[in-house]
Amino acid sequence: MIKDMVEVTSRPRSLVDVPLHYCPGCTHGTIHRLVAEAIDSLGIRERTIGVASVGCSVFIYNYLDVDFQQAPHGRAPAVATGIKRVLPDRVVFTYQGDGDLASIGTAEILHAAARGERITVIFVNNAIYGMTGGQMAPTTLSGMKTTTSPYGRDVRQAGGALRVVELLAGIDGVAYAAREAVTSPARIHRARRAVEAAFRAQIEDRGLGIVELLSTCPVNWKLPPVEAVAWCEANMIPAFPLGVLKDTTRSGD
């Protein structure tokens, strides 16, 4: 127990000790930490290469103490494919937001999954475009107001929220697919296990591992951070059910 407490309060080796640039209440910091913890616990820091995407997390390479390439918008799974194919003994992960992965990058993630690329995908879903100022995302909820759905997302006109991990879980090349949230300590604990499992799917040469993490965007949701967490619990989790959708280490999956 004491050992666990020490781990909770110390900074992971792979997390750089600098102030984050993220807005107050943003959950990217939490998720960065989960990735760093997984890298530490698996002992892979010196052989891990991250691929940053386009969005708020574009500067993730300032916070994680591993090699990084920064990919064009949506193309992180293709860049990761290039790295992993020529360095098959390294661990390669992408860190992508919902606009990046679920809108402009659908072809790249779908085909990386179809090829069963041995990469890990950390997919952060906050239902909105953060970096560009709060536009409608493919994961924006029905009726949700954004700067480009000012009257609320009209499903008839703009479609409904895209549930990506359900899509990807149906692809043979995907070894692990889960959705968790980072809205409470208990959920963060589950999310930590999922992130590590998504890395293990790669390290054990089983296939692509993806974790979708429901996140908050207080500034663009126009909510205080605590209310943003509550809003995510009340609205996003019902629309995006949590849990492990696929895990090839489990029989019957």
């Binding site: 390439q69 990919a71 064009p72 860049v79 085909h111």
Partner: peptide, 18 residues
Amino acid sequence: AESEIAAINMVHGASGAG
């Protein structure tokens, strides 16, 4: 690759990996 977009980005990754 699934497209020329993906192909050039795979070059990006592999070339960046030396």
